[in-house]
Design a protein around this nucleic acid. Structure first.
Lengths: 110, 110
DNA sequence: TCAACGTGAAACCAAAAGGTGTTATATTAA
DNA sequence: TTAATATAACACCTTTTGGTTTCACGTTGA
């Protein structure tokens, strides 16, 4: 699938439904790859490749623990997506968008 | 690239940087494909395919006007992305997240 | 010590993605 | 009516994606 560093960005990483589900699982609890695989109808190797893509995008990391490797969520890169989408919020968002905007900007000054 | 209906979802549509840039352009002003193409180093045919993907995801539509076809942004499907990402907000967001949550929930009751 | 376990990595494959150039068709201006 | 314009549609190509099976290797429990 890929091994070159920095090859996958966060938008690409979340494009695949399986990867989004992996993120959701890891958001509840860190776990080794075999545990993750149990939730899906595909092979462990396929999951490993998805984890590689997520790792490229800095969304997960794994630490070795005995003979297992525990994978863990790092949600921070998703902020980039949130920022991107916030530009479009104005098109659908309602009367509260201004308040939200003020709230968020105020926070940045602390 | 594709022509089967409903094949591309919004997450896939925004995965490509060119398509994100097309969305940004159309957010400022509707325009025909040749105008869009002028902003990119790739062929009009390639842009047409990107527009097809965006159209599958209901993010753009085109209306014929004389011999031109004017493409227009429909940002609504991005709400799905926003909703998805809002689940992860709690991981990075600060003390104001609770207020924002209240604000948003209050709005739903109107 | 050694078999079983959990994993990563390699080789392979079909299909999809992202691009190209060419051709066909409708519209408009002269 | 005819040439130029704007676009869509087609055929084609290369790389990437998402999956498989197989193999090698470190760790651990008996």
């Amino acid at each position: 699938m890929s091994q070159a560093p920095q090859k996958h960005d966060v938008f690409q990483a979340i494009a695949d439904p399986t990867r989004r589900e992996v993120l959701r699982l890891l958001s509840q609890k860190e776990m080794p790859i075999s545990k993750i695989t149990a939730y899906f109808p595909i092979s462990r190797t396929a999951i490993a490749k998805h984890l590689h893509v997520l790792s490229d995008a800095k969304l997960v990391s794994g630490r070795k623990e005995g003979r297992e490797r525990i994978y863990q969520l790092h949600p921070e890169p998703l902020e980039e997506v949130q920022q991107w989408i916030s530009f479009y919020e104005k098109f659908w968002s309602n009367k509260l968008s201004i308040l939200k905007h003020i709230v968020e900007n105020d926070d940045k000054n602390h």
